[in-house]
Amino acid sequence: MIKLEHIHRDFQVGDQTVHALDDINLEITQGEYLSVMGPSGSGKSTLLNLIGMLDHATSGSYSLADQNITEMDEQQEAQIRNKYIGFVFQAFHLIPRLSAAENIELPLVLAGIAPSVRQPKVEQALQAMNLVDRAHHKPDQLSGGQRQRVAIARATITEPSVLLADEPTGNLDQKSGEDVIDTLESLNKKGITLIIVTHDHHLGKRSARAIKMLDGRIESDQANG
């Protein structure tokens, strides 16, 4: 499903080169549940952005669903991203002037799918996320947990194969965080590949496979028993 080979990602900070990712080799199969942990600056977010094609490797090769991403142009990438990748962010990133339903609908809108096809999917997503009565609320009228559930619904509306979550519980209280993780895990049980970047050790232990990063390298990669 996901295959990273000798991935390097260098940043130029002043006259110093920072190796955010340093020779990463990683293979993830469909339906896996991965957590990526590590201190700040260890490269875990960069890894996630790279998998989501928001960032590009300085060298190395990346293939997703047997397609070589490294050789694609920007337009193709955007299509692949829309089709295969769902993002969940720490800061939710909902568009404030759009209602919950409209936020969820956005990826379908961008993909050029007709309103008549979109409508039932949005309904279904609202139902699945338990947000039916919040459909027409603006993000500022929703609680943090509800906002993140809207974001998850948005990330999964195109039925992607990979769900990338960057500190999805970082802005949430304990209870809402639990809810969100439960939601993500239930999606994983239905077959989606789930990759969570987190600081939370407790969360790290829940995943089937845990990766620890340090200074741009994978320090350990082990299955949780």
Partner: peptide
């Protein structure tokens, strides 16, 4: 800016 970044993350190309 953040909204445009989001649109890109949701699969909007430069052209869009």
């Amino acid at each position: 800016t953040a909204e445009i970044g989001l649109l890109k993350a949701l699969g909007a190309s430069r052209q869009k």
